[in-house]
Design a protein around this nucleic acid. Structure first.
Length: 365
DNA sequence: AAATCGTGGGA
DNA sequence: TTCCCAAGATT
């Protein structure tokens, strides 16, 4: 684009934004704390999903100090169901980091912001431009879509160099006076008009500048080669009651899938020796060997399996029931604890866990 | 640098 | 069913 076109393009785009921008709670002001929270919640997550979480989270934890001091249970409870749970733990770490090393003030440049845990290139650009008027792009999926089409740029967005590539491409298009609004205009355009499938080019405010529209190649962009295959895994979820009728929950490690959350005890079917034994026997052996726990009455509950799909995993989970034979049984070797039915919801529950409890009819009345 | 990390929704 | 996508970061 030549310089004259760039100026007209910016004016056209920002004028469209001024009349069509979405009224979102994190757009009420430019408080960096709120901009930051919204951006982290919006990572790989749609606006509609984020809205109720943002309201509850900001009401419970309205500032850095409150966030830095929140206990883990409340933090995860505020995040439950939103996914990518390391985001929540990183928020708290970042709040502590900002209070300890930055006097509780957000740094104002993208480069400095990237030093905060949980803030990567995109989020740094978003905060710097929206909260601090820094002239930097915010290169997310919307930006890939909008600018690959606008410029008919066929750089493969599956490549890790895609982000720096598009940052370089977008930089000269940024309006120095309103970089934050420009970046948000890209997001709104990407969400409403320049969508992945069936983009509404006839309604697009920057149609006249769009190279791919002029050649009818909108759907050829962005170029993305990599596809993810979900690995299929069969699991057993155990409904184990003790003598008091409480249920055994398994505490998952802080790192990794559903980190820090609790679920019904899960066993990967491929870890069981079912060649020589029946499935109930194999589960009994597994718990005895791994956790020094003696299960009795292990049985298939014959319920419809719970299917749960993660980004890279496809789980099919069969529910089995069991009891703890010895009322004095020592659970010390098992990473978890017994919880009465009425208290199952005290800890944060991933959506997977809610599905399991519902299928086992253990949801709160 | 490729894999890992959730969930809900749409075609 | 199955696949893909939605305001990515971390290791």
């Amino acid at each position: 684009m030549n310089p004259n076109d760039v100026a007209a393009f910016q004016t056209t785009f920002l004028t469209w934004y001024d009349t069509n921008k979405r009224d979102l709670p994190w757009r009420q002001n430019h408080d960096p704390y709120l901009v930051w929270l919204s951006e982290v919640m919006l990572q790989q997550t749609q606006v509609q999903t984020v809205l109720p979480y943002f309201q509850r989270f900001t009401q419970a934890l309205p500032n850095l100090t409150a966030l830095a001091q929140v206990d883990e249970t409340q933090l995860l409870k505020l995040w439950e169901g939103l996914g990518y749970y390391s985001r929540a733990r990183n928020l708290k770490k970042a709040a502590q980091q900002l209070l300890a090393d930055y006097d509780g003030q957000f740094p104002t440049t993208a480069a400095e912001l990237e030093n905060i845990i949980g803030i990567g290139p995109y989020t740094a650009g978003a905060i710097a431009s929206i909260a601090f008027q820094q002239v930097v792009p915010a290169v997310d999926g919307n930006a890939y879509r909008v600018f690959s089409r606008l410029l008919a740029d066929d750089f493969d967005i599956s490549q890790s160099k895609a982000r720096p590539h598009f940052a370089q491409v977008i930089q000269p298009l940024l309006p120095p006076q309103r970089p934050g609004d420009f970046n948000q205009a890209v997001m709104d355009l990407g969400a409403s008009i320049c969508t992945t499938k069936d983009p509404a080019c006839l309604l697009c405010p920057i149609q006249a500048y769009c190279t791919s529209y002029q050649t009818g190649t909108q759907l050829d962009f962005p170029v993305k080669t990599k596809k993810i295959r979900q690995k299929k895994v069969q699991l057993i979820a155990l409904v184990i009651q003790n003598a008091q009728g409480a249920y055994l929950l398994q505490q998952r490690p802080e790192q990794g899938l559903l980190g820090g959350l609790t679920t019904l005890p899960l066993v990967d079917l491929s870890d069981l020796d079912v060649t020589e034994q029946t499935l109930p026997q194999a589960l009994q052996t597994y718990f005895a060997h791994n956790y020094n726990l003696a299960l009795t009455q292990v049985q298939d509950l014959k319920l419809k399996p719970v299917v749960h799909v993660f980004t890279h995993l496809h789980w099919t989970i069969h529910l089995f029931g069991a009891k703890l034979g010895d009322p004095q049984a020592d659970v010390a070797y098992f990473p978890g604890y017994f919880v009465p039915k009425a208290r199952l919801g005290d800890q944060a529950q991933a959506t997977l866990q809610k599905k399991l409890l519902k299928r086992a009819d253990l949801s709160k009345k």
